[in-house]
């Protein structure tokens, strides 16, 4: 697959994403600067984590207006794979490619630690390599990662099986205690109705090599590549 890793001013996880794709997964991957609208026929697009535009106005609010995002929206509508990680998830919600929004963490703390999440739906292009209800250990690092959607949206995304990851305990239970940021229904990651756009707050690119101590994040990208 050909992968485009988008860089906004303030993105800081772009290098980790490129490294994962090029060095670990041996994919063809390259950066695309936010002012460029040419994704160079990418099959997959990654919106990396960071603090695009310093989180000014709202996280992802200004990034969504970058020239590259018109091309990303078009690619998503054409069925190409789009993965938004952390700030990337915020940009996807701001741009309307995913429903809902990410708001300030309920406890007002920036949460930077390992976090357990449960795989809720393995019948997707992003999760087919995982066992059903598998518990993954991925790092989180965010101050505004609490997923919010109104009741009718929450009902709709549940019915359409768009909730892919939820924060959970070691036993795989969905509890208040295991929710690091107050997200509605412990939602950590979702996809769109077509199943080609993923947004998640945890960082799979930081858990994709044994040298990092954990490879739980690899499955997302392996699922995409194997299904392509």
């Amino acid at each position: 697959m050909r992968w485009a890793v988008v860089q906004f001013p303030g993105s800081n996880c772009d290098q980790d994403c490129l490294y994962l794709l090029q060095e670990v997964l041996k994919q063809e991957a390259y950066y695309v600067w936010h002012k460029d609208s040419d994704l160079k026929n990418a099959d997959g697009i990654v919106l990396p984590g960071g603090f695009s535009y310093g989180d000014y106005l709202r996280c992802g609010a200004i990034a969504k207006l970058s020239p590259v995002m018109k091309s990303v929206v078009q690619a998503a509508n054409e069925g190409k794979i789009v993965v938004g990680i952390c700030n990337g998830f915020q940009v996807l919600c701001e741009s309307g490619l995913l429903p809902g929004a990410l708001i300030r963490n309920k406890n007002l703390k920036f949460r930077c630690h390992q976090q357990l999440i449960r795989v809720e739906n393995t019948k997707t292009r992003f999760t087919s390599k995982y066992e059903s209800q598998a518990v993954l250990n991925l790092p989180i690092a965010h101050g505004e990662g609490s997923y919010f959607a109104d009741p009718s949206t929450l009902k709709s995304i549940a019915q359409n099986k768009q909730i892919l990851f939820r924060y959970c305990s070691e036993e795989g239970s969905i509890t208040d205690f295991s929710n690091p940021n107050g997200a509605c229904e412990n939602i950590a990651g979702i996809c769109n109705t077509k199943g080609n756009v993923l947004g998640l707050m945890p960082h799979p690119e930081r858990a994709a090599e044994s040298a990092l101590g954990c490879v739980d994040g690899l499955g997302i990208f392996q699922s995409i590549i194997n299904g392509s």
Partner: peptide
């Protein structure tokens, strides 16, 4: 302003 239906933890802290 945040919608009334949205939790505003900053508002609560203030």
């Amino acid at each position: 302003t945040p919608k009334k239906s949205v939790l505003d933890p900053q508002g609560e802290a203030v």
